[in-house]
Design a protein around this nucleic acid. Structure first.
Lengths: 177, 177, 177, 177
DNA sequence: CATGAATGAGCCTTCATTCAT
DNA sequence: AATGAATGAAGGCTCATTCAT
């Protein structure tokens, strides 16, 4: 059943978020999903498959792709990315999975590749759409933008509103000198 | 001997960087350090102690503290942090350990605390010294600065020089509107 | 399977009897049981569980309980206990497990409690049924009886028949002065 | 120094009594003795030597030998053995060591031999001196006597005085029918 | 699809023992 | 005599993975 697969995935996300990919036993995932341990390996041949699938969901690739596919440009594109990003990682679980995924990327070529893509090609395309060019300066600005977002979710400041933060970093990277 | 302890630490940093804290067997560390497995536990009662010690070295706390202790302000302080930061994490090993440490922080309260400190109190002190105040805007800018640095080291762009990058993000976050 | 559990228990009794609880490696138990080492921990979460279960079988609690539950009194009760006791510990394996259990009781509260019970409450009940009262003298005599049994099994004298021994100690502790 | 040797022996008795021979690490003995771990192995080539020496002190051989060497007979001999025995094992430490020694005897031929001696030859000599003969009945009675003592120290009854107990078991085993 | 018994590799850790100093 | 660093052999235990049912 497709639904069982989802239950496993969801349980795995919880357990992985809490323990990290490598300290999370399949037994625990099975328990939380309410299925037998064996069943996990029916849906996901190896634990690594489960990790890869979850890591790919945890990275921000979907966000960038989605915003790029929309008909928005410049500040609007930044805003789309910014608010989607923060929204996605407002979920503590997602935030932790993001970090675990980055950490695990050194062991998983597949994850590493996705990471590179979002930092390389996609960032370049975003820069092109935001600043109208993809020269060094624009690339740096896009990086600063992403870095700011990452820093925000990694350790969310209590006193600063999401919207305020986004506006501020947009104006930082976008302003005309 | 103090030197043996260092050999173990160094080997552990290599192995941890490559495999992550939880997939790195003590056996491998011992091999690379050229000592017996048992000796690791003579110097570090438990593997967790080794992890904690290495994680504390991998976080950027030392950099911020060092720059804050110097008699520099404003752009100079940013430049100090920026270049120290990038210099520290130019070492691929250090970069990986940084990420693993952040990832492991959810399992290690001690690491978590250090991380919070560098994102909270220290960042605030830095903001105060750089912008002359620690209001929301300044905090956000400092975060943008750190985020940009993190983003740079996480996935270093081939074509952009370190100095150029630092200059650009300094001007981004520091400029007067 | 229940049968596998029994195989493990039986093998463990052999190995524990021979080596004592703490010098008996799980590996050996697995070998003798014809199962993998891991399986032992499927049936008994920790080695201590295995030890506790076996120790509880090795103590004479079952014997006393069984005889007390029967409709016998006075000499008959003594004879019931005596012959069951000697019969149980005629098995060299059981005898050794008894000693190991007493020795291990200082580390295992659960075993210690069972031991206390058989030397305290149960002995008193037995005294009451045998002598019709549980005053000091009767308690002492019951203790002498149990002690004699223990001494017999600890180092069985070659030349003395079981029945002869029991008769003699019964007459010792039971006679009217 | 002879005194250091004694310190080690004494510490070992404490630690062995508490943990049993096989769960007592040399490290702990060294700590309690206030010496280095290495020194233990200078005085006692192997841990087993230490165990053997302590076990031999813990068994009641010395008591029986001592009483037999005195010029006492019959009830007096019983009383000598009884009160020395109870006095020796009133020390909780000695009591535990006695049990651990019996338990360990299956792994240590040397201990096993001492145990056999006190249950065989010495018991026979004692019987001869107490009852004037060493026929089956006398042997059984001596065993009952020792068993009663063992049972007393194994689980000392709160309400019964030492002297009262000894008197009673002496009269039990010694009375003329 | 689903279960859970079964396996075996490997991990962290302990510990008796040795040895250079 | 005395120390404590160093070793190597296990030992208990976990866990991904398989497989008969």
């Amino acid at each position: 059943m497709e639904e069982t697969r989802k239950r496993i995935l969801d349980a795995a996300m919880n357990v992985f978020a809490e323990f990290g990919f490598f300290k999370a036993p399949a037994r625990l995932i099975a328990e939380k999903a309410g299925v037998s341990k064996g069943l996990i390996f029916w849906y996901f041949k190896r634990k690594d498959d489960l990790i890869s699938e979850i890591a790919s969901r945890a990275l921000p690739v979907d966000i960038i792709e989605n915003c790029l596919s929309k008909d928005v440009e410049r500040k609007e594109l930044l805003r789309c990315i910014g608010s989607s990003y923060i929204s996605k990682y407002s979920d503590e679980r997602m935030k932790k999975l993001l970090i675990h995924s980055i950490s695990a990327s050194s062991s998983y070529p597949l994850i590493s590749k996705m990471l590179d893509r979002s930092c390389g090609e996609m960032l370049r395309r975003a820069a092109l759409r935001v600043f109208g060019k993809d020269d060094k300066k624009s690339i740096i600005r896009m990086r600063a933008f992403f870095g700011s977002l990452l820093c925000y979710v990694l350790n969310r400041p209590q006193e600063i509103e999401e919207k305020e933060y986004i506006d501020e970093i947009i104006s930082l990277v976008y302003h005309e000198k």
